[in-house]
């Protein structure tokens, strides 16, 4: 659950990149030993030579290959900082602080837990941490259901990778891929008895998923993307109001059980 590993400031090299109009999958390597990183944790990436981007960019870890010291980030081009990152050339050096934040709560291995159906719901770039989470669940014996939503087909990324670890269900608002509509409207949610939901995406989407989870009385964790400055609990900017008052999403989150939130 928690980040036991010490936080480090590490340099990485960009060794592979796949780019789409609004996003990029960036694969990094370090010559150092990667600390242990859990699904749901994030990194703070420094953006060089961009005066309008003073702060680091918090990005959730998309995938880890610890043996080879590789770390993948999925970057959505939303502002000058993320555009600059996505435009980096291969072999560029990138500085990151990691690992940051808590992580998704992993269940006991399937043969002990009695949990049948786990649904991982991602909206837009919010699908990023779900690949790493899905792989971890697969290693625990589960066959996760990935429910991925976007405005249109172009927003649905990494389909091949998701299919390696579980079943994939898709909704798009314009109907260009999968079922037309919102993730909360997908037929799979009526067809199976959902035991557990993990969710990451835009706040309105996560709130809709949270209220659905409450309605069907289902365990549910969401990963918040509050604006932050430091990422390690010093600035107190990224707070979310919870049943414990204002807490930092960078240290006590980004993952919260929906029962902790005042949604």
């Amino acid at each position: 659950m928690s980040s036991i590993a010490n936080k480090l400031v590490l340099d990485f090299i960009l060794y592979e990149k796949e780019e789409w109009p609004n996003s990029a999958l960036m694969k990094f390597k370090t010559t150092e030993i990667l600390p242990e990183i859990f699904p749901g944790q994030f990194v703070q990436v420094k953006v060089e030579d961009s005066p309008e981007t003073y702060l680091r960019r918090p990005l959730s870890v998309n995938f880890i290959d610890r043996g080879n010291s590789c770390l993948w980030l999925l970057v959505q081009k939303v502002g000058p900082g993320t555009r600059k990152l996505a435009a980096l050339a291969l072999d560029s050096k990138v500085n990151m602080i990691l690992p940051l934040g808590n992580s998704f709560s992993l269940p006991e291995p399937k043969k002990e837990s009695g949990i049948q159906n786990i649904v991982l719901i991602g909206g837009g770039i919010g699908t990023a941490p779900l690949l790493f989470l899905g792989k971890s669940l697969r290693e625990l014996g589960y066959l996760p259901n990935f429910l991925l939503g976007g405005r249109s087909a172009a927003d649905i990324l990494q389909l091949e990778e998701f299919r390696l670890y579980g079943k994939v269900f898709i909704t798009t608002q314009d109907g260009t891929l999968g079922e037309q509509g919102l993730v909360t409207e997908h037929s799979i949610l009526n067809e199976i008895q959902v035991d557990r939901i993990y969710c990451c995406g835009p706040k309105p989407m996560m709130q809709a998923v949270a209220s659905l989870a409450k309605k069907i009385n289902c365990w549910c964790e969401v990963s918040l993307e509050n604006l932050m400055a430091c990422g390690f609990g010093a600035c107190l900017c990224c707070v979310e109001k919870t049943n414990k008052g204002h807490v930092c999403t960078c240290t006590e989150g980004p993952v919260f059980n929906i029962n902790e939130l005042l949604w």
Binding site: E52, Y54, C235
Partner: peptide, 17 residues
């Protein structure tokens, strides 16, 4: 308790809190 979120806005070469 501090102020409500959002509490931070990035600016050119700086930030508001």
């Amino acid at each position: 308790e501090g102020n409500d979120y959002p509490r931070m806005a990035e600016t050119a070469s700086g930030m508001l809190n």
